[in-house]
Design a protein around this nucleic acid. Structure first.
Length: 423
RNA sequence: GGCGGGUUGCCCGAGUGGUCAAAGGGAGCGGACUGUAAAUCCGCCGGCUCAGCCUACGAUGGUUCGAACCCAUCACCCGCCA
């Protein structure tokens, strides 16, 4: 049963590279294997880019193995040179500490930590007390610089303007993590995105040299959308965060609802735990009846409940159904309308209603009043689904739904609520 | 330490005294079309009290009627030399 894990991951498009796959498969069919995935605390939240890692950990846990989530309190200070063309800005200690805490909470939601079935660690534990001399003698000695220079991440940086010694050293720290987890917890597998492959194998090499042990690394392909690298960037341009404070569950849900038809099958495979047969049915449906958007709906529901829980997902679905439904907004009952608008960006205003331009800016639908003015001029502004022509006109009392609300829309899919505060 | 090159709007990148809120591309936004999709076409894309005004071309100061463009100083980046 547990032997199916690699096949499962492979079917889901989650295997890019691996060290000896057959040897890994043998280990996985035997005893419980301990594996780890690390995230650096570069922000106070993980984003969808890290979601694959969390999902992979859970797959392994479900297959009976023991996952370790690592929050990089130490590596977060250094900055991973991979995937970028220039140096990172260093974070302050307070930022890193705060971020580690938040990220730990998120990791804990995907990995069952009860009864030692999973672990949460911070690499500051074994690096804080490490002296420079010990580090250079015990770790640095095992890293041939010529090998490091050949790694793709380093090479890219050398070609695009250089790299500091600090970031150059990142690989050593990540390798040290693997070594420590091997020693402390018998960790024999590190998983990560394919951009981490160089760091993953560096750890494997270090363990072979120091401990004469053969351990494994497994990477998944970086998830991309058909239209290019903008995956994970929400339509507003920012990242899609897992933290509801940074990306509202409504916006999160909407992102997945709007996924391109060509991507939806792939995303169902790698971002959900739905059974193969079910995904195949959904993929077929997406081809045969694209208008129904069943696959996107299911994808959005699954991922949103994975990240934000079933209850929040119910609220978001209800809101989307109410606001994007065919019916007249005026027909929605007050409770439904209020609940729906609560999920969208919204603003509260008092007595004399502001102009449409002000409302667009106030709710954040438009980045500025100038942008709002443009939207109106372009015919993209709607109040209660009715296009607005005059940017300076203010909605009247008759426009208010149930005497209190306005549904503001920009374009086809950006909605916001406005509530009139009772005088 | 020396010499040379560079720093432009979300990103890339043109611009070397007025015609510059700054070419072009990408991203993004709106419209038409539609399926809260893609493709295509059209329009937009610094801010504001919007036929006008304000702020911007690494920072500061200067020359000039006038500077992203000239000069000086500083900061950072890149290359070559020591």
């Amino acid at each position: 049963m547990a032997s199916d894990i690699l096949d499962e991951l492979s079917w889901r498009g989650l295997i890019a590279h691996s060290t000896d796959l057959d040897a890994l498969r043998r280990e996985l069919t035997g005893d419980r294997v301990t594996l780890y995935y690390g995230c650096d605390p570069t922000a106070p939240s993980l984003h969808v880019g890290n979601l694959v890692g969390l999902i992979v950990l859970r797959w392994f846990q479900q297959a009976g193995h023991r996952p370790i989530g690592l929050a990089g309190g130490a590596t977060g200070f250094i900055g991973d040179p991979g995937g970028r063309s220039s140096e990172r800005n260093l974070l302050s200690e307070a930022e890193v500490t705060h971020n580690v805490e938040r990220i730990g909470e998120q990791l804990a939601r995907f990995v069952d930590l009860s009864d030692g079935r999973g672990l949460l660690v911070n690499n500051i534990e074994w690096t804080a007390g490490l002296s420079v001399i010990d580090f250079l003698r015990d770790i640095g000695k095992h890293f041939p610089v010529n090998v490091m220079l050949a790694k793709e991440t380093i090479r890219n940086r050398l070609e695009s303007g250089g790299i500091s010694y600090t970031e150059f050293s990142y690989m050593l720290l990540q390798s040290l993590d693997y070594l420590e987890l091997f020693r402390r917890h018998g960790c024999r597998l590190q998983v990560g995105g394919s951009d981490q492959w160089g760091n993953l194998t560096a750890g494997v090499d270090l363990i072979r040299r120091v401990e004469a042990a053969s351990v494994h690394a497994l990477s998944w392909p970086l998830v991309t959308s058909v239209t290019g690298e903008k995956f994970g960037k929400s339509t507003g341009g920012g990242s899609l965060w897992l933290d509801p404070e940074l990306t509202s569950p409504y916006a999160f849900f909407q992102y997945w609802i709007n996924v391109d038809d060509r991507d939806v099958g792939r995303y169902l495979r790698c971002f959900t735990f739905l059974a193969r047969e079910e995904i195949e049915v959904l993929e077929a449906a997406a081809v045969e009846r694209p208008a129904a958007r069943e696959a996107q709906r299911r994808l959005a529901e699954e991922i949103t409940s994975l990240v934000h829980g079933a209850a929040e997902t119910e609220r978001v679905i209800a809101a989307s159904r109410a606001l994007f439904g065919q019916g007249d907004l005026a027909d929605l009952d007050p409770a439904t309308l209020a609940a729906a608008l609560a999920e969208t960006p919204h603003a509260t205003v008092s007595a004399p209603l502001p102009s449409v331009v002000d409302l667009l800016a106030l709710t954040g639908l438009a980045a500025s009043k100038s942008a709002a003015r443009r939207t109106v001029a372009e015919g993209g502004a709607y109040v209660n689904n009715v296009r607005v022509a005059d940017p300076d006109a203010a909605p009247t009392a008759e426009d208010l739904l149930h005497g209190r609300w306005l549904v503001l829309r920009k374009g086809k899919r950006s909605l916001a609520g406005v509530e009139l505060k009772p005088a």
